[in-house]
Deep mutational scan, measured.
Amino acid sequence: QEVDTIELTRQVKEKLAKNGICQRIFGEKVLGLSQGSVSDMLSRPKPWSKLTQKGREPFIRMQLWLNG
Rank of each mutant, 00 (worst) to 15 (best):
Q1H: 01
Q1D: 01
Q1P: 04
E2K: 11
E2C: 03
E2Q: 10
V3N: 03
V3E: 12
V3Q: 12
V3I: 15
V3M: 12
V3F: 11
V3C: 02
D4H: 03
D4Q: 03
D4P: 04
D4A: 03
D4Y: 02
D4G: 03
T5H: 08
T5A: 05
T5I: 07
T5E: 06
T5R: 07
T5N: 05
I6K: 15
I6G: 11
I6V: 12
I6F: 11
I6D: 04
I6S: 05
E7S: 15
E7D: 01
L8M: 14
L8S: 13
L8Q: 12
L8F: 08
L8N: 13
T9K: 09
T9W: 06
T9R: 06
T9M: 02
T9F: 07
T9E: 06
R10I: 04
R10K: 15
Q11G: 07
Q11P: 10
Q11Y: 06
Q11K: 15
V12D: 11
V12C: 02
V12M: 10
V12Q: 08
V12S: 10
K13W: 02
K13F: 00
K13L: 03
K13H: 05
E14T: 09
E14I: 05
E14Y: 02
E14N: 11
E14F: 02
K15C: 09
K15E: 11
K15R: 10
K15F: 07
L16E: 12
L16D: 07
L16R: 12
A17Q: 09
A17G: 06
A17M: 07
K18Q: 08
K18M: 11
K18N: 11
K18R: 08
K18S: 10
N19W: 05
N19D: 15
N19R: 15
G20E: 03
G20N: 15
G20K: 14
G20V: 02
G20F: 05
I21F: 09
I21H: 02
I21L: 11
I21R: 02
I21K: 02
I21Q: 07
C22N: 06
C22Q: 05
C22H: 13
C22F: 08
C22S: 14
C22K: 05
C22V: 06
Q23V: 03
Q23C: 04
R24I: 04
I25H: 15
I25Y: 13
I25T: 15
I25R: 11
I25C: 04
F26N: 00
F26G: 01
F26L: 03
G27C: 12
G27L: 09
G27D: 01
G27W: 01
G27R: 07
G27S: 13
G27M: 06
G27E: 09
E28A: 12
E28I: 04
E28F: 06
K29G: 07
K29P: 02
K29T: 14
K29H: 09
V30F: 01
V30L: 02
V30I: 13
V30G: 15
L31P: 05
L31F: 09
L31G: 05
L31S: 06
L31W: 08
L31Q: 03
G32P: 06
G32T: 04
G32V: 01
G32A: 10
G32R: 12
G32Q: 08
L33K: 10
L33A: 11
L33G: 06
S34N: 09
S34H: 08
S34P: 15
S34Y: 09
S34D: 12
S34Q: 09
S34L: 09
Q35I: 09
Q35F: 14
G36V: 10
G36P: 11
G36D: 14
S37M: 09
S37A: 15
S37W: 09
S37C: 15
S37Y: 07
V38E: 04
V38Y: 14
V38N: 03
V38M: 08
V38H: 04
S39C: 12
S39Y: 10
S39Q: 13
S39N: 14
S39R: 13
D40P: 10
D40T: 09
D40L: 05
M41W: 14
M41F: 13
M41N: 04
M41D: 06
M41C: 13
M41Q: 07
L42C: 04
L42E: 04
L42K: 12
L42D: 02
L42G: 04
L42R: 05
L42H: 07
S43M: 15
S43C: 08
S43T: 13
S43F: 03
S43H: 14
S43W: 02
R44I: 07
R44S: 12
R44M: 12
R44H: 09
R44G: 09
R44N: 14
P45N: 05
P45D: 02
P45Y: 04
K46A: 11
K46M: 08
K46C: 03
K46T: 06
K46N: 02
P47V: 11
P47K: 12
P47D: 07
P47M: 09
P47F: 13
W48E: 00
W48H: 00
W48V: 01
W48I: 00
S49W: 06
S49C: 05
K50E: 14
K50C: 11
K50R: 08
K50G: 06
L51M: 09
L51R: 00
L51G: 00
L51Y: 02
T52H: 02
T52P: 03
T52M: 07
T52V: 12
T52D: 15
T52E: 03
T52C: 09
T52Q: 06
T52F: 07
T52N: 13
T52K: 09
T52A: 12
Q53C: 13
Q53H: 07
Q53A: 14
Q53M: 10
K54I: 06
K54L: 07
K54C: 03
K54D: 10
K54G: 05
G55T: 07
G55K: 07
G55P: 01
G55Y: 10
G55A: 13
G55S: 11
G55E: 15
G55H: 08
R56M: 05
R56E: 00
R56C: 01
R56N: 00
R56F: 01
R56T: 03
R56Q: 04
E57M: 06
E57W: 08
E57K: 10
E57I: 10
E57G: 09
P58N: 14
P58T: 14
P58A: 10
P58L: 15
P58S: 10
P58I: 15
F59V: 00
F59Q: 00
F59M: 01
F59S: 00
F59L: 03
F59D: 00
F59R: 01
F59P: 00
I60L: 13
I60M: 11
I60T: 13
I60K: 13
I60F: 06
I60G: 02
R61L: 07
R61K: 15
R61A: 07
M62E: 00
M62Y: 00
M62T: 04
M62G: 01
M62P: 00
Q63V: 04
Q63E: 04
Q63C: 02
L64I: 06
L64V: 08
L64N: 15
L64D: 14
L64A: 15
W65C: 01
W65Y: 04
W65L: 01
W65T: 00
L66R: 01
L66A: 01
L66S: 00
N67A: 12
N67Y: 06
N67W: 11
G68C: 05
G68I: 01
G68M: 10
G68L: 03
